[in-house]
Amino acid sequence: MALYRDEGVVLRTMRLGEADRIITLATPEHGKVRAVAKGVRKTKSRIGARLEPLSHVTMLCWNGRELDVVTQVEVLSSFRPLREELDRMVPAMTMLEIVDQVAVERHPMPELFMMLVGALKTLATSSSPLVLAGFCWRLLTIEGVAPIVECCARCGGPDPLVAFDGSEGGFLCRSCRRGQAVSPETVELVRRIVGGDLGGVLSEGPHGVDDDVEHLAVSAVERHLDRRLRTTRHLLDAAPSASPSG
């Protein structure tokens, strides 16, 4: 069928020609979609604002040979809180970058899509680093590489688990330890998140190890993708200072 309708979350956009853009979207039924949106860079475009990264939309597209063409767009949610606060925007962009990496064109991915929309909604109400962490752990589960958190990933031994190693696929006990050292609090928090209690964890407020859990989750995803993510919180840490004048 030449014309199709689907939901989508805009992952990224790229300038094309004078006033067009190539929009990359994550959709439940058509997987990753790359489509041309014509004239959207002009201020009078009706759909330009609707096709910004992070927008959750329903759209009507023509099937093209290489690129589809977006003809109609309606916004379901623009996730405004994520656009107006840098501390929420960066983890949201990290999620988009991860989905862009794992999604396959024309390959339906309803579970991944629902998870992305859910995570963005959660992030719109909570700026906790654990939202991104929860997204990453859940994504690894969907990808079939869920972390081993209940016992040592190497020998199967019980607690205490003292390290995390992505190549082993989870936490390690004292005698097998390698990779990154972790605190008992981190182990417990990751267990609860992987076990599906993200809502409960978020309702408790900061735990003191939230940043560590996020870092661990992002590292695990980077290992799975076999590449470093470009969009991380640390990107904005290095604030440049004024150069000497003259």
């Binding site: 990224r12 988009l96 604030a239 200072s241 004024a242």
Partner: peptide, 16 residues
């Protein structure tokens, strides 16, 4: 960030 453009790639230091 997704295109690899961070603050270091912009003329922020010169602005300050």
């Amino acid at each position: 960030p997704i295109e690899g453009v961070g603050p270091e790639q912009l003329r922020v230091r010169e602005l300050l």
